[in-house]
Design a protein around this nucleic acid. Structure first.
Length: 557
RNA sequence: GGCCCCGUCGUCUAGCCGGCCUAGGACACAGGCCUUUCACGCCUGCAACACGGGUUCGAAUCCCGUCGGGGUCACCA
């Protein structure tokens, strides 16, 4: 006898596709009925892998924005049915990443909640109960087939170019069957007894109506012979237990949805609202972004540039992270290098979503207030680290001076450029440097470009190419420097305006252009050929340091 | 291969229940201005409706087909 799902499973209704996707009747009814009660509950289910992937953050962010907009609850559930060892250690960086970004969760690890536990590994009893109900109600069966026997059937079907459907030859329908199979030394897994006719329609909030033929669905295994349960079963049971109302997840789960709906409706659960997000694609491509293909991304100029910039800061910090986990695909990269969470969130929100044709900057609250599922795009969006950088640039420029001080100081300390904890003197100088540097500091770690302002005069590190060009190859350069040095040493005051006046006076007297001395002077004092205003630099260093540095540069020639 | 999803500048996108689109914005890129270098800023430029058929006075927008890209088909999650 064919077992069929409950009648609600089957729908032949045809509804014209509507690109605007007004919210489905289900949703509006819930929202209306809810009025004051909380009716939106969403979840993100990270696997404890040891790092937070940028694509995962995007998915979590959309869940979070949607939930916050509706005053609901956002839940973190841990998908650890697979790996049992070191879950806590592998989870820590993920939770840390969310905290750093300011994506908070209402229930889940570390915060608990009324539906604990939030770890799938601790919920076997619930899954077991669900399996037993499915079995008792005829929506699942014990299957004694060996893996090879299934494979043979599948290959035969493929050879004949017909869709594969398991014959259910080893399905046990009675205790007698079980005894017989077991006497042959077979063990049983539990399979879903999927419908074999009719269609299933899913009204996805992003993709409108999507239909599937039940006959294409396999009798998926939901429980292994050893009693452990598989993901789809666990997922459905947990979503129900946690009272999840909206399942907002990546597109790759769309094809898995029919079996999940079969399970949940067989169990008598109400369907959540589904919204399948387009995935985040590789830079300049439409292929799904993956942490495993770093080599490939490094061939992308922009990606490589952002990566290299981050590595340089890591170097200056004195730590040498593994390429696998230190790159723009992993969130930790941004924290280590000194990006702003707001910039990342803003960039990510616009990756697959937009409010209109011009708004690009959103505060968190604005994002929450304006986020709707119907403005989520359907095509995959490729990850563009350069654009993320542009957002970072913008947010950094908006940051008040004192906050820049707070964010950059730890970098100087970690790089041991200044003592830790540092004193007021360091903070004062840091303030001066940041003001002078202005928007040249794109990420907090960029402060290390100005480390020489905090180091002793005799340890300035020179850009040798620049030193060569400005000081060694220009014969007259050092003589001029020497003469200007003497004027500096005798200067009355040492502020930028006065210094500039002094230099103007000097070049007039020498009969040269400003350009004929200023570059050499910059290299002598800062070690580099690039940087912020030279008069600011001299003023920050003060007379003694400036003179000492010029002397040293002349001397080492 | 079956099933499902998707297809507007290099990238993110607006527009998509037809005319306001000689397709708008942003990033990137190129050139210029500013300038002691770099960065910022400002100005200018480059650049797209995948293709082919329909329907229509009129299509990026509706219909059909083709092509292309992707996802998924596990006793992984």
């Amino acid at each position: 006898m064919e077992s069929r799902g409950p009648p609600v499973l089957i729908s032949r209704q045809s509804v014209p596709r509507d690109r605007r996707r007004p919210s489905s009747p289900t949703v509006s009814r819930r929202v209306a009925a809810a009025a004051n009660t909380v009716l939106v509950r969403t979840r993100f289910a990270p696997s404890p892998t040891g790092y937070l992937h940028i694509g995962g953050v995007r998915t979590a962010l959309f869940n979070w924005l949607f939930t916050r907009r509706h005053g609901g609850q956002f839940i973190l559930r841990i998908d650890d049915t697979d790996q049992q060892r070191n879950v806590e250690a592998a989870l820590a960086p993920i939770l840390h990443g969310f905290r750093w970004l300011g994506i908070d969760w209402d229930e889940g690890p570390e915060v608990g909640g009324p539906h604990a536990p939030y770890y799938q590994s601790q919920r076997q009893a619930q899954y077991q109960a669900a399996v037993e109900r499915l079995l008792a109600d005829g929506f699942a069966y014990r299957d004694y087939a060996k893996t090879e026997e299934i494979a043979v059937e599948r290959e035969a079907a493929e050879k004949e170019k017909r869709p594969f459907l398991y014959s259910r030859r080893f399905m046990a329908t009675s205790d007698a069957d079980r005894r017989r199979f077991e006497s042959e030394g077979r063990t049983a897994v539990v399979r879903l007894k999927m419908p074999r006719d009719g269609t299933l329609a899913i009204d996805d909030q992003i993709r409108s109506r999507v239909e599937f033929d039940w006959a294409r669905e396999q009798d998926h295994v939901i429980q292994r012979a050893d009693g452990s349960c598989l993901y789809h079963l666990a997922n459905v049971v947990d979503d129900h237990d946690f009272e999840i109302t909206h399942v907002i997840r990546a597109e790759e789960h769309l094809s898995n949805t029919p079996r999940q709906i079969f399970i949940l409706e067989s169990l008598g659960y109400e369907r959540p609202v589904y919204a399948h997000l387009p995935y985040v694609a590789e830079p300049g491509s439409k292929t799904k972004l993956s942490k495993r293909k770093l080599d490939k991304y490094l061939k992308n100029r922009d990606f490589a540039q952002i990566c290299e910039h981050g590595r340089a800061i890591a170097d200056a910090l004195g730590f040498h992270p593994e390429a696998e986990t230190f790159n723009p695909v992993i969130v930790d990269f941004y924290e280590q290098v000194g990006y702003l969470p707001d910039a990342i969130l803003n960039y990510l929100a616009l990756l697959g979503w937009s409010l209109d044709d011009r708004t690009e900057f959103f505060t968190r609250q604005q994002m929450i207030d304006s986020f709707t599922l119907d403005r989520v795009n359907r095509a995959p969006a490729s990850f563009d680290p350069k654009k993320l950088w542009a957002f970072q640039d913008h947010y950094m420029q908006e940051l008040p001076l004192e906050e820049k001080v707070e964010r950059t100081l730890p970098f100087l300390e970690r790089a041991r450029v200044v003592a830790s904890p540092s004193g007021d003197k360091v903070r004062r100088r840091l303030r001066q440097v940041i003001e002078a540097a202005g928007d040249r500091i794109k990420v907090a770690g960029d402060i290390l470009d100005y480390a020489d302002f905090f180091l002793p005069d005799d340890s300035v590190r020179y850009d040798e190419a620049a030193f060569d060009k400005q000081l060694r190859r220009e014969a007259k350069a050092t003589e001029r420097l020497q003469r200007f040095r003497d004027r500096l040493a005798a200067a009355e005051t040492f502020d930028p305006a006065e210094l500039e006046r002094l230099l103007q006076e000097f070049v007039t007297a020498e009969g040269i252009a400003v350009g004929n001395i200023i570059h050499a002077l910059r290299v002598a004092v800062t070690g580099k050929s690039v940087g912020f205003g030279l008069f600011d630099a001299l003023a920050i260093l003060g007379r003694n340091a400036s003179v000492a540095r010029i002397d040293r540069a002349i001397g080492r020639r």
